[in-house]
């Protein structure tokens, strides 16, 4: 009797997960199940990702104006032309700077939000949803809201109304590139749209940090607040942080929608994808040169990602957590 009820406080038995009851019909054929579950996704991946990627690489070696089934092979000429195009190379530089700014900012904001929501004692689900909701908004719709109601140039725009309380004149946020207020519009929009999603990732990671760690730290004399955060929370979030930064970096280089919709016929603040869109799908319809640019951009993202992975140890997440 006593042997079964006695609880060994010092050596708790490891929690055993309840045995999952195998469902009828799905037992046995693991191969079939594997293909059943991954098949549709794989087909989509091949049709919508790999085939276009291959096609694009193929196009990049051809003179492909006004056609996607070209016949005249021109070797590396498209690559030379696109690298000679100052608009494209300039956009690569601009967006490396943009990424260097937006990635840490979004990372810090989403982590901050996650910490706040994690610690809140009431209406947790409400706040979590409120911060997550903007993720569901389309970039185009949000860009229009930012452009037409918040940062329009007339006196009743939200931003200009607030400025007018302090006696500041109307600002043409997007039309006038000097001073470059358009970055404020773009950065606030991006933060609003993205922070919620990454907050959810951090929140999940925070909930996975064992409470015992904090208890142990507190017994060892760690002060709650900065010290605990710095030496317990942050290292525990390392894997998530790495993933988040990686995703943010790729997203920054892939920026398109809000820039396209906010800046219109400008020559500044043009992300690489907008330049490629103009080359390939604009009035020139030079799919060869556009594809060459896409290949260059992909290589660039690949190199930066690998470098970042090396720096932060992506894939070594489990042991370095």
């Amino acid at each position: 009797m006593s042997t079964t009820t006695e609880i060994d406080l010092a050596n708790p038995a490891p929690a055993k997960p309840a045995q999952a009851r195998p469902r009828r019909g799905l037992r046995g054929n693991a191969t079939l199940n594997f293909w059943l579950f991954t098949g549709p996704f794989l087909i989509g991946l091949i049709v919508f990702v790999f085939v276009p990627m291959g096609w694009s690489i193929y196009l990049s070696f051809f003179e492909a104006r006004f056609t996607v089934s070209p016949s005249s092979f021109i070797g590396l000429d498209n690559y030379k032309a696109i690298l000679d195009n100052p608009d494209f190379t300039g956009s690569l530089v601009t967006f490396t700077v943009f990424a260097a700014f937006i990635v840490p900012t979004t990372w810090a904001l989403s982590l901050g939000l996650a910490l706040l929501v994690h610690r809140i004692r009431f209406m947790k689900a409400f706040f979590r949803s409120v911060f997550f909701l903007p993720t569901a908004v389309s970039y185009v719709a949000a860009a229009l809201v930012w452009k037409m109601s918040m940062f329009n140039g007339v006196r009743f725009g939200l931003a200009n109304t607030i400025l007018s309380w302090f006696g500041v004149d109307n600002v043409a946020w997007l039309a006038n590139p000097d001073p470059p207020w358009y970055w404020l519009v773009i950065v606030t929009l991006r933060l609003w749209l993205q922070a919620g999603f990454y907050m959810i990732l951090f929140l999940a990671a925070l909930q996975n940090i064992p409470a015992e760690l904090y208890e142990a730290a507190s017994i060892d004399g760690a002060r709650p607040g900065w010290q605990t955060f710095r030496y317990i929370t942050l290292p525990q979030l390392r894997a998530t942080s790495t993933a988040v930064i990686l995703l943010l970096l790729i997203a920054a280089y892939q920026a398109f929608d809000e820039f396209w919709n906010l800046l219109g016929k400008a020559t500044w603040g043009q992300p690489p994808l907008v330049e490629l869109y103009k080359t390939a799908l604009g009035e020139n319809q030079d799919y060869g040169q556009g594809s060459a640019g896409a290949v260059i951009l992909t290589l660039l993202i690949l190199i930066i990602t690998l470098f970042q992975g090396k720096l932060m140890g992506f894939g070594r997440g489990e042991e370095s957590k």
Binding site: K147, M148, S149, N152, G153, V154, G157, A172, W173, N176
Partner: peptide, 8 residues
């Protein structure tokens, strides 16, 4: 500063 800019 006399031109209307960024009109909705």
């Amino acid at each position: 500063g006399n031109l209307l800019l960024d009109a909705p």
